[in-house]
Design a protein around this nucleic acid. Structure first.
Lengths: 219, 219
DNA sequence: GGAATTAAATGCGAAATGGTACAAAAAAGT
DNA sequence: ACTTTTTTGTACCATTTCGCATTTAATTCC
């Protein structure tokens, strides 16, 4: 075995920023991938209906490994939810930051949202926040905090959009950016719920279209 | 130590409106009351996290009685959801039918909705449809059908409101009642979700206020 | 090659779960 | 009083669930 000291091979396809040269038996799973599988399950069935056996089967890790890697079921759920929020944020942040006309920005945001909510081989997956996390929020303060954070983050992002549009003269003088932002968030929420009930994409797009029309012409 | 035989009768306190003179041992529970308790539990914890033991304790019925009265757990869940929808409809139908200005009707509807979502001793209960039923909808066609029915019923009720308002000249000529109805439903959904995350009533009322302002002045 | 280290694999166990069988109890009909 | 009918109450069963203890495998360091 040569090649001992150098920062080597990057056999790891996910270009390891660090090549830590771990000491014991190597992992048989990639944590990121496994977490993604867990996320899919939790998202489809919720916290209580997802068993450790299900998670074990989906991730290919047996239970002790799961436990060692992510902690107990609740911790895994929370990490999954964090991952979901990170992914969703990453998918939207560019659009929110972009300097485009209001209507275009809204349309792009909603298209991304529909992609997220409607994907999944075993039926539409809906929104983690709306579907399962909000349910747990009543009884679990930590999850509740995350949910509230997610909600207000979305409100704020939309708020900046509308404030910006108003400054540019895309909205009438009397328009209230905060109210419009809440309605924009509400539209996200309503399509998340409807997607979960398998309302077809065409209908959801029609709802979005109507909402965008109102929001862009408001007041 | 004896006291074996008579058990104090604990007379059935309820005056039955109908005295059907049933044949066997009388029921020790009132089905409507028991269903209400089951509804509360399902609403708080969802389907999977609510055990038959929980239901048994809450209703005061032991499991065989539960089973005999309502069928298995899924049937009980569905009956609870039907009961919820009936109650919610009953609470709103008068307002939807009433002949009042648009703004007033909306305000009253949302006040009722907030009452429903925020009540409950162990925290706000949210909306059954949004919180637990929509989650089950992916995998259970019957529940999915009920959810879709509930959503479209609300859309339609709001749609009639806005169409009516437009005919009366309360809305501008260009307003689209269907889009406004979807936004009104979306506002219901967003406050249901936020209520579940324990957002205080004041904030929810502010969101409603902003939404009503936009919806009444739209286009 | 051997010790140390890390993870996988097996499997146990106590508790909980959904559902049911069966007997005791409480009423009406005879 | 006795039977019939309906419901209650107790106990049980098979399965599932979560979590962990223990053993085995793979790798690095010496």
């Amino acid at each position: 075995m040569v090649q001992k000291s150098k920062r080597p091979p990057s056999a790891a396809k996910i270009a390891a920023p660090t090549a830590p040269k771990r000491r014991g038996r190597p992992r048989a799973y990639e944590p990121e991938v496994a977490l993604g599988k867990a996320l899919d399950l939790f998202r489809r069935d919720g916290f209580a209906a997802t068993s450790l056996d299900d998670l074990s089967a989906a991730t290919g890790m047996n239970r002790p490994s799961l436990y060692g890697a992510f902690g107990d079921k609740r911790e895994l759920y929370i990490k999954s939810y964090q991952r979901y929020r990170d992914d969703a944020r990453a998918a939207m942040v560019d659009i929110f930051r972009a300097d485009a006309p209001l209507r275009e920005r809204l349309e792009r945001i909603y298209r991304i949202a529909l992609d997220i909510y409607l994907s999944g081989e075993s039926g539409p997956r809906g929104c983690f926040t709306v579907m399962t996390a909000a349910s747990e929020a009543v009884s679990d303060p930590d999850i509740r905090t995350m949910v509230v954070e997610g909600l207000t983050e979305l409100d704020k992002a939309f708020g900046i959009c509308f404030r910006h549009a108003k400054e540019r003269g895309e909205l009438p003088e009397g328009a209230d950016p905060a109210s419009l932002a809440h309605l924009a968030s509400a539209t996200i929420h309503t399509i998340a719920i409807r997607a979960r009930a398998r309302v077809p994409r065409k209908e959801l797009e029609a709802i979005v279209k109507g909402a965008v029309d109102v929001l862009c012409a408001a007041k």
